[in-house]
Design a binder for these strands. Structure first.
Lengths: 130, 130
DNA sequence: CATCTATTTCAAATTATTATGAAATGCATA
DNA sequence: TATGCATTTCATAATAATTTGAAATAGATG
């Protein structure tokens, strides 16, 4: 990354890469069209958005959580019913419910002794899609 | 789970649970309508399908992989261009490309010295959605 | 107030995922 | 065949996620 045929500038490094790299023509031609490496980068969602997207997918990356989401897409449920339905320990269930809630896929509301969980609109979209 | 008011049968355990559990009326009434715990379970996708869903989400649960998918939604790319664009090591990139490929979100094709990755139709759906 | 039930929290142990750098593979070309 | 380049593989280290069981919290009820 020291010698380059191109004038120094904001994207000098990228242009230099494209010049030096002997990648297949089909790819390079299109790449040049869209502005090279810099153009490619510019088409990425901002890092913050990418973080949000991966976080949501992470929330649904465990079969227990996918199952919970589907149960709640049927109707709102208290913890003890979810627990009975899935046959897992209370603390384990609580752990997974937290992750779904933190990611805005479900919400909870206390009702006397019980905690009622229900799916959000956002959560519903993922339950339908899956 | 020993004494129950109901006849023994396939779902005796579940019915017993519903009878004993003093969950809020709003929830229990609906729950009874759909067939209780057993009815709820019957509405879940099969375990196999839930595994597939969570596996796909897992493939997209890392920001590096989400970024790669978005890059490939612009155009097919060889590894060296993705690498330059993201500024990560080759072995790290290879690791993440493998996960995306194993989950059917991208495919690869060798072209001389280069390996060209392109997004699949399935992968494209997730790139659009995100 | 004492007790029961439902749920959550916590710390520790277990397991899974990701990162790293060196070595290996495979194609191209002199 | 020797060399160079692009990519992958491998073993290992580092980090993160999940499970577990005991203890804590909080509402309801006698």
């Amino acid at each position: 990354m020291t010698d380059t045929l191109l004038p120094a500038g904001e994207n000098a490094g990228d242009d230099e890469f494209e010049v030096r790299c002997g990648i297949p023509d089909v790819i390079r031609d299109d790449l040049v069209q869209i502005g090279g490496i810099a153009g490619l980068r510019a088409r990425l969602p901002p890092a913050e958005r990418i973080g949000e997207i991966s976080a949501t997918h992470h929330a649904l990356s465990d079969p227990v959580r996918v199952a919970i989401l589907h149960l709640l897409s049927v109707q709102p449920l208290c913890v003890c019913v979810i627990r009975e339905c899935m046959g897992i320990s209370g603390s384990k269930l609580s752990y997974h419910l937290n992750i779904l809630r933190e990611n805005g896929l479900i919400v909870s509301e206390q009702q006397g002794n019980w905690m009622i969980y229900r799916i959000t609109e956002r959560g519903g979209m993922f339950a339908e899609a899956g």
